[in-house]
Amino acid sequence: MSMRFGVFVPQGWKNDLDEIADPVEQYEAMTQVAKLADAGPWDSIWVYDHFHTFPEPTMNTTFEAWTVTATLARDTTRVNIGQMVGCNGYRHPSLYAKMASTVDVASRGRLYAGLGAGWYEHEWKAYGYEWSEVPARMAAFREAVQIVHRMWTEDEPVFQGKHYSIDKPINEPKGVRKPHPSFWLGGGGEKVTLKLVAQYADGSNLGNGDPEIIKQKLAILREHCDRLDRDYDRIAKSTSLNLQPGDTTADMTRKVEQIREAGADYVIAYFPRVAYDHEPLLRFAEEVIPQFA
């Protein structure tokens, strides 16, 4: 099974820009990694949709996801650009759909539009978003996915739900990629998220690099696809891979091989010090990716 690869750019969320004092230089460090990926053989670059650093909120840079997505779309020419994943609670789904359509055009069809239910409670409350427990967030997420899909595929979409409603919003242009911008859903919830993936998504992100979890969740996804008569093979099945400083080529290859054996066909790699040291990124591209392409 051939695989595709993406890479997270250093955005600040994991304190990965803290050693650079000037915010302009921080942004340029992020852009430089994006341009290296654009030179190949990476399929995509990714950002997180967060406002505060993780695992602890600190007074450090975290660049906003959709602003970054739009600018990187113009700083690159080849790679796809996505969010892993957009937080549904931070934007009304109708606005999300409109923003994604615009960026899909700006990138000439290179957007991977990611969406998830969200989870970083501290961040929600700090920015004034109403926090709710899992059942309510998942219910809102289910409605949001339907609204986004309708706004990308219908001229006069109407939706009336418990959490959201739309009444014939005009969304022109709807994007460049056909039949609509590439839609990726994040999360492994077996009853809601994975069913939504089978119904609406072009890509899924689950398992956080753990082969056993990946295998378990993909089995559930396949069951949903079978029930809905959806072609399982047409869905990109991605997972995140957190690499460590000092990982050898053999270490990286072994981790990817385990992920492939679990059934994933897409790896999104995170290199914690890539803003300061490009060598692991370049070595992964030169020595690991060709083994799985």
Results as ranks from 00 to 15, higher is better:
Met3Ser: 01
Arg4Tyr: 00
Phe5Tyr: 01
Lys14Tyr: 07
Lys14Thr: 08
Asp16Gln: 06
Asp16Phe: 04
Leu17Ile: 04
Leu17Phe: 07
Asp18Ile: 14
Asp18Asn: 12
Glu19Arg: 15
Ile20Val: 11
Ala21Asp: 15
Pro23Asp: 11
Val24Gln: 15
Gln26Lys: 15
Glu28Lys: 15
Ala29Thr: 08
Thr31Glu: 12
Gln32Asn: 15
Ala34Asn: 01
Ala37Ser: 09
Ala37Leu: 10
Ala39Leu: 00
Phe51Ala: 06
Phe54Gly: 03
Pro55Leu: 04
Pro55Val: 04
Thr58Gly: 12
Met59Val: 12
Met59Cys: 14
Thr62Tyr: 12
Thr71Asn: 10
Asp75Trp: 01
Thr77Asn: 07
Arg78Asp: 11
Asn80Cys: 04
Gly82Val: 05
Met84Thr: 04
Cys87Gln: 10
Gly89Trp: 06
Arg91Pro: 14
His92Gly: 03
Ser94Asn: 11
Ser94His: 05
Leu95Asn: 11
Leu95Ala: 11
Met99Ile: 09
Val103Trp: 04
Val105Glu: 15
Ala106Val: 14
Ala106Ser: 05
Ser107Gln: 02
Gly109Phe: 07
Gly109Gln: 01
Arg110Cys: 07
Leu111Trp: 03
Tyr112Gly: 06
Gly116Arg: 00
Ala117Asp: 05
Tyr120His: 14
Tyr127Ser: 11
Trp131Gly: 08
Trp131Cys: 06
Glu133Cys: 00
Phe141Arg: 03
Gln146Lys: 11
Arg150Thr: 03
Arg150Ala: 13
Thr153Leu: 11
Lys162Trp: 00
Lys168Ile: 00
Pro169Asn: 03
Asn171Tyr: 05
Glu172Arg: 11
Pro173Gln: 11
Lys178Ser: 14
Lys178Ile: 05
Pro179Gln: 09
Ser182Phe: 09
Phe183His: 03
Leu185Trp: 01
Gly189Asn: 13
Val192Lys: 06
Lys195Asp: 13
Lys195Arg: 15
Leu196Gln: 14
Val197Cys: 10
Ala198His: 08
Ala201Leu: 07
Leu206Val: 15
Ile214Asp: 08
Lys215Ser: 14
Lys217Thr: 05
Lys217Leu: 15
Ala219Arg: 04
Leu228His: 10
Arg230Tyr: 13
Tyr232Ile: 00
Arg234Glu: 00
Lys237Glu: 00
Leu241His: 06
Gln244Glu: 14
Pro245Cys: 08
Gly246Ala: 05
Thr248Ala: 04
Asp251Lys: 04
Arg254Thr: 07
Ile259Ser: 08
Phe271His: 12
Tyr276Phe: 12
Asp277Val: 05
Pro280Ile: 09
Pro280Val: 12
Phe284Glu: 03
Ala285Asn: 06
Ala285Tyr: 10
Pro290Met: 09
Ala293Val: 07
